[in-house]
Measured scan of single mutants.
Amino acid sequence: LQLFIKTLTGKTSTVEMEPSDTIENLKAKIQDKEGIPPDQQRLIFAGKQLEDGRTLSDYNIQKESTLHLVL
């Protein structure tokens, strides 16, 4: 599924993920695209901070969801 990652600067990146992927996997993919180390990334979806060990489906993240990346 395609996700949009929006940064505080207003920049939006697109990443392709599976519902079974963990937040950790997602942060690794963001690191590949943006060069931001996972330990500096905080991802927010629906007002919640996402935890590394959980999966996208745990948070009911659907295709074309927008996640907010806070550093």
Rank of each mutant, 00 (worst) to 15 (best):
L71M: 10
D58R: 02
D52A: 07
Q2R: 15
L8Y: 13
L43N: 00
I61G: 02
A28Q: 13
I5S: 00
K11P: 06
T55N: 05
I5Q: 00
D39E: 14
K27P: 00
D39R: 10
D32A: 13
H68M: 14
G47W: 05
K29D: 02
K33M: 15
N60L: 07
T9K: 11
F4H: 10
L67K: 01
L26V: 06
L67F: 04
A28W: 11
D52G: 07
Q2T: 15
T9S: 13
Q49I: 15
Y59N: 02
Q31H: 14
K48A: 09
S13Y: 15
D52Q: 05
K29Q: 06
E51H: 08
D32Q: 14
T12N: 06
G35I: 02
E51D: 09
E34Q: 11
I44D: 04
Y59W: 02
K29T: 06
R54C: 08
L3N: 01
V15W: 08
K11A: 10
K33G: 06
L50H: 00
E51M: 10
Q41H: 03
K33R: 11
E34Y: 15
E64K: 10
L1P: 03
G53A: 10
K29I: 09
I5N: 00
Q31S: 12
Q31A: 14
D21Y: 04
F45G: 01
Q49D: 13
Q40S: 09
I30T: 00
L67G: 01
F45S: 02
T14L: 13
E18S: 13
M17H: 04
L67R: 00
P38T: 14
T12D: 04
M17I: 11
L8I: 12
Q41Y: 14
E64V: 06
H68T: 14
L1G: 04
I61Y: 03
L67S: 01
S65H: 06
L8Q: 14
M17W: 09
L50G: 00
E51G: 04
L43H: 00
D39S: 13
I36P: 04
Q41P: 01
G10T: 03
K6L: 11
K29W: 11
S65E: 08
H68K: 07
F45L: 05
V15D: 01
V70W: 12
I30A: 01
R54E: 04
